[in-house]
Write a protein that binds this DNA or RNA. Structure first.
Lengths: 361, 361
DNA sequence: CTGTTAGCGCTTTCAT
DNA sequence: ATGAAAGCGCTAACAG
């Protein structure tokens, strides 16, 4: 590549001033005679000068760039967060490094170090696998501002924004319960991820609050993918005494479930109700349109970016931000099929079931 | 942030050698006495040294980083390309800047310049709006290696990889024609985008080759979104004499069409056939599973990355790469409804239609 | 093989 | 208000 870049010196010469003055003009320092400043600006225009950000970064000791570290950029959820972060941060002139971890812990550590060696200002850790304390330590050591996105980290002097998944899934479960469902299958994401755990907890709390005994044979751990949801549904409905509704930890798995049920000729929602989480773009266009826990995805990203901007400018770790999800009721859920829920299940619960049902009419 | 970074000098002192020697060790130059090298490595380990990439970039005049510029990272298609590029490029130690243009031409120009000022090595332009010649000029001027992804650019000394959309859509159209469809609606993407144009051309060529007169009232331009597909379907089917099949320029619009038809109680494929393009993750899980033109998305990214690597190492612009799409026939397409196709259309074409039909049995 | 030296392009005292 | 000079951390001649 040819590309002789024009430097500050050339501008200085062209404008008949010193490099220092050019620097002052470029950086909008006010102590430059307007006349000179104009001459410099003209030279800059004429030679199409663009400051070498790398040189600038070297002397400043930091570059105006952030790193965004996600498990999987091809996942809509993460790519939307990523977009929100970018859109929020871009107006300040900052750029963004993007990195995939594939959910591998060591990759995460590795990437953070690489990013730090590039003198980036801050780093967004989206759904990180690393323990909060380690993040704190590493960031301090590396001199990088960390903001954790979509993971609940408390009491760590760590800036973080997440969604209240427990409450969200209590609500989702109660929606199903209010429709008379008592045998509700649950497909969790990887339980090593705090969000997955929280969602499962929400489900459990809701059951308990409504006097429904937990049946561990109804709870499955999967992987947040369509294929995973499909496979899990298959297992779930092959057993005797299957659920009348299934609550999924994300939409992709719900799509898998829907797909399986459709293939088996099972009608949703008349025979089985299905609930997802995320409200991905296609959720409202599925047949039936999917009832789902809508996560404030974009807001998650925007908030994270705002926290980062505040963090870096004040040097004080901003308070955590807890966002709320919203249950969007569409057509994949309905009242439990008449007599279906209990007749095939524990006869002992028949009575309470009827009471429950009556209560909700 | 505290974060006293350890420098090459500290390592030099610790190991009792000169900075140059440390540099040699770090960069694996072989002309260092093994004994010394080991001492240096130990110091590096002990002090947890990581080379300052910014300083390195300044002296080298370039940093081992690429820019990826996409219209919209939250679109699965682009995020998958992005992931492929990253995965391919990462093993070489390179990092990736990600930028959204929202399909705005000027943003594209702006971003390319910003990226260049960061001394990046090369830039991936995914579905760019900029004319090829301008890309060539700008890249030369800025001293950056450009690779164009998912856009047909020929005869420009410009490295590019794209999919043969014309052939793909001829095939998709012929699939429909072979099922007896003669009134085939077409929902195009923005026709300013070459790919959209090519797909439409494929459709037209197929019609012509099979003696079907083109009916411009069947051709719509939309925007590649679910909402756009929905809205267009609404218009399309409100007219008298609607099509018996609709071919969409991407899956998202097909999802919109499916959603509209489902809402109207129209059965797919028995009443209307629908074809999409991209084979997005949910395509096979829709009901009905969507017949679609499967684009080699991941391969698009991998190929682009390989071209870039070759480009930067040989300094010769690699030959263009044309990938092939594949029609995946699922359940959203079927034979045209008996007597439906023509009875409501131009009686004049009745005969040729019957001939056509017989040909394909 | 190894150390010394001279910058890469920019910002930032420090004089003037 | 402006210029001269030092130096950010590293690499790459150039000596030895």
């Amino acid at each position: 590549m040819a590309g002789k870049r024009v430097t500050i010196k050339m501008i200085a010469q062209e404008a008949g001033v010193s490099p220092a003055t050019v620097s002052r003009v470029v950086n909008n320092k006010r102590n430059v005679r307007p006349e000179l400043a104009e001459r410099v600006r003209e030279a800059i225009r004429k030679l199409d000068y663009h400051a070498n950000e790398v040189a600038r970064g070297l002397v400043r000791g930091t570059v105006d760039t952030f790193g965004v570290v996600v498990p999987d950029i091809s996942n809509t959820f993460f790519s939307r967060i990523c977009k929100a972060i970018q859109n929020t941060v871009m107006p300040t002139g900052a750029a963004v490094f993007l990195h995939n971890t594939d959910g591998i812990l060591n990759r995460e550590r590795q990437i953070i170090k690489e990013l730090a060696s590039k003198l980036i200002t801050g780093i967004f850790l989206v759904a990180p696998r690393m323990p909060a304390t380690e993040i704190r330590t590493l960031a301090d050591e590396l001199g990088v501002y960390p903001v954790v996105v979509d993971a609940r980290v408390e009491n760590c002097r760590l800036a973080a924004v997440w969604v209240d998944n427990v409450t969200a899934f209590i609500e989702a479960s109660e929606h199903l319960i209010s429709k008379g469902h008592k045998r509700i299958g649950f497909i969790a994401g990887p339980l090593a991820v705090a969000n997955s755990k929280d969602r499962l907890d929400g489900y459990r709390i809701a059951l308990r609050n409504h006097g429904i005994k937990e049946d561990t044979s109804l709870i499955y751990e999967s992987d947040f993918t369509i294929a995973g949801g499909y496979k899990t549904a298959k297992e779930m409905f092959r057993k005797r005494n299957p659920p009348t509704a299934v609550l999924c930890s994300n939409d992709l798995m719900a799509v898998g479930v829907l797909s399986y049920l459709h293939k088996q000729g099972v009608e949703v929602p008349s025979e089985i109700s299905v609930v997802g989480c995320d409200d991905i773009d296609v959720a409202s266009s599925l047949s039936p349109p999917l009832t789902t826990v809508s996560q404030p995805i974009y807001e998650l990203g925007v908030t994270a970016a705002q926290m980062m901007l505040q963090y870096t400018s004040t040097n004080e770790v901003p308070p955590n931000s807890i966002l709320h999800a919203k249950l969007i009721i569409r057509n994949s859920t309905s009242n439990v099929q008449e007599g279906k829920s209990e007749s095939e299940t524990h006869p002992a619960e028949q009575l309470s079931h009827n009471v429950q049902k009556r209560d909700n009419r």
